[in-house]
Simulated assay, not measured.
Amino acid sequence: MTQNPSQERDRAGPMAPAGRGRRALLLGAAALPFLARRAAAAELVVFSSGGLNAAYLTLVPAFQQQTGHSLVSVQASSMGAAPDAIPQRLGRGEPADVLLLASGGLEPLAARGLILPDSRVDIARSLIGMCVRAGAPKPDISSVDAFRQALLNASSIAYSASASGVYIENEMYRRLGIHEQVMPKSRRILSERVASVVARGEAEIGFQQVSEILFVEGAAYVGTIPEPVQLPTIFCAAIPAKAREPEAARALIRFLASPEAAPALERTGLEPLNRG
């Protein structure tokens, strides 16, 4: 029997919304993986001390591209009483998801319960280096005796307020037997790279982690201090107890400690602890 066209339209009409609904459902299902990736993306606040900061910043784009996470980077010293030091920031309740700092600065934080247990991962080994202003003569520091004499001859000395500076002030000068002679002309630098102070001519020589000297314009790297009075520092990563994104934080720490990150660490004067 021949159907009236209007009857055909009437029969087709109720079917159309159902077809559109099925198509919408299929499109929605196809979008689920993308939406899941977007939902999983996190914003991480990273407190990074100077020793690791140069390497960390070069690795940020690769991590963000690989994971979809975004990083908010805050430079902060590992220890000390400066307002921007990591202990002071955490003490004020500033939010953070990852800490990158010297192991000596981490231990007191862990003792205060400010770090997630078992979240520490060691990333790189660092040495103390010496710098002078670009164009200035570089003192001989190839032996302990030559190094001692260079310190006695210097008109002014600058050192970090963080791990290397604490060692220099409290131990190295005493081991060299010149604490009384050089402390009056030595200056602890807060919240700034020591090499920047030397580059401006405000100190004749300066000491800091090698990675914090190499890329400062206007400063010249002299070398590492002699092995008998050297203090290697282990830089590590950890997760604060109040981290908002602990799983994403673990992903960042795994990346920074991976063989993939090793070349960036080496380029900035650090010794990676995991080359693969």
Score class of each variant (00 low, 15 high):
138 K>L: 08
138 K>G: 03
140 D>M: 07
143 S>F: 04
143 S>L: 06
147 F>K: 06
150 A>T: 00
153 N>T: 10
154 A>Y: 03
155 S>V: 05
156 S>V: 00
157 I>T: 08
157 I>W: 10
160 S>P: 05
162 S>T: 14
165 G>L: 02
166 V>K: 14
172 M>P: 10
175 R>D: 11
176 L>K: 04
176 L>G: 04
178 I>L: 01
179 H>D: 14
187 R>F: 15
187 R>P: 08
187 R>Q: 14
188 R>T: 12
188 R>E: 10
189 I>W: 04
194 V>M: 02
197 V>I: 12
197 V>N: 09
200 R>V: 02
201 G>L: 03
202 E>S: 02
202 E>D: 12
204 E>R: 00
210 V>F: 01
210 V>I: 15
216 V>E: 13
218 G>E: 07
222 V>H: 07
226 P>N: 02
226 P>L: 04
226 P>W: 03
228 P>H: 12
229 V>K: 01
232 P>E: 12
233 T>H: 15
233 T>F: 13
234 I>Q: 14
234 I>L: 14
234 I>N: 13
236 C>Y: 01
239 I>K: 10
239 I>A: 09
239 I>C: 11
240 P>L: 08
242 K>F: 10
244 R>M: 14
245 E>Y: 08
245 E>H: 15
246 P>H: 07
247 E>Y: 07
248 A>H: 05
248 A>Y: 10
250 R>T: 10
251 A>K: 13
252 L>I: 10
252 L>W: 13
